[in-house]
Design a protein around this nucleic acid. Structure first.
Length: 197
DNA sequence: AAGTATACCAACCGCGAGCGC
DNA sequence: GGCGCTCGCGGTTGGTATACT
C-alpha cells in the first residue's frame, strides 16, 4: 500500500526545530491564504516541511493570541476539572482555556499535574456517590461541541453567559469542590450555545 | 567543576474521521 | 460503496535546561 499522504517524507522534509526564517515564511503565507490546505501552505511558503508540521507550528506557536508563560492557579484548577470530566481530550480542554494549546496543556498535565494528582489523590466522592445520568449523557455530546467550536460556528466564551475573572478565566474562588453545579453549568453552556438538548 | 538525573517543552508519529471524486 | 487526500488528535520521543551529587 502506498504511504499515506499525510505522513511526512522523512528523507526529504526538514525536521527538527523551526528557524525564525521558516516561521516568518509560514506566517506570511497563512496571512494571505489562511490556515488551511496545509500541504499547499508548506509548498507556497517554500518550506521543506510537511503540511502537518506547518499546522503544528502554527497552532502551537504562531497563531495570534497564543498565551505564553506560566499557567495560573485558576487555569490549573480548570484543567484538573476538565480532565476529570473529559479525560485526555486535550483539544477540548484547550478550547476552554483561551490562548492555550492542546500540546501545552498535555505537556503541563504530564509533567506537573499527573504527579501532583497522584500525590494528593484523595477520594473526593463518597463510595456511594453516583454520577447523575444527565451528566453522563451530556458528556457524550462534547464531541459535537468540539466540532462545532472548531468549525467556527460557535460563539466565543466571551459571548457566553459565563462570568470571567479579571484575567479572563473562570473564578472558582467561592466554589465547593464537591458541588456538581459547576459541571452542570459547564454543560448547560454548550446547551445554550449550540442548542442540543 | 564535572557528571548524572530530572524536568520541561517542541516536534514527530500513527491513527481515525470527514470529505470529495 | 470504495478510494485517496487532508486534517486533527493523542501518545510518544528527543533535545535542552536546570538541579542535584
Amino acid at each position: 500500500m502506498a504511504p499515506r499522504s499525510s505522513k511526512c517524507n522523512k528523507k526529504e522534509a526538514n525536521r527538527g526545530a523551526w528557524t525564525a526564517e521558516e516561521d516568518q515564511k509560514l506566517a506570511q503565507v497563512i496571512e494571505i491564504h489562511g490556515p488551511k490546505r496545509w500541504r499547499s501552505v508548506a509548498a507556497k511558503a517554500g518550506l521543506n516541511r510537511c503540511g502537518k508540521s506547518c499546522r503544528l507550528r502554527w497552532m502551537n506557536h504562531l497563531r495570534p493570541n497564543i498565551k505564553r508563560g506560566n499557567i495560573s492557579d485558576q487555569e490549573e484548577d480548570l484543567i484538573v476539572r476538565l480532565h476529570k470530566l473529559l479525560g485526555n481530550r486535550w483539544s477540548l480542554i484547550a478550547g476552554r482555556l483561551p490562548g492555550r494549546t492542546d500540546n501545552e496543556i498535555k505537556n503541563y498535565w504530564n509533567s506537573h499535574l499527573s504527579k501532583k494528582i497522584k500525590q494528593n489523590e484523595k477520594p473526593v466522592r463518597s463510595s456511594t456517590w453516583q454520577e447523575p445520568d444527565t451528566v453522563k449523557t451530556k458528556v457524550l455530546d462534547m464531541d459535537n461541541v468540539a466540532k462545532r467550536s472548531e468549525e467556527g460556528t460557535s460563539k466565543t466564551l466571551e459571548d457566553s453567559k459565563f462570568s470571567f475573572g479579571g484575567d479572563g478565566f473562570f473564578d472558582f474562588s467561592n466554589e465547593d469542590p464537591l458541588n456538581l453545579e459547576w459541571m452542570s453549568e459547564f454543560l448547560e453552556l454548550d446547551e445554550t450555545l449550540y442548542g442540543f438538548p
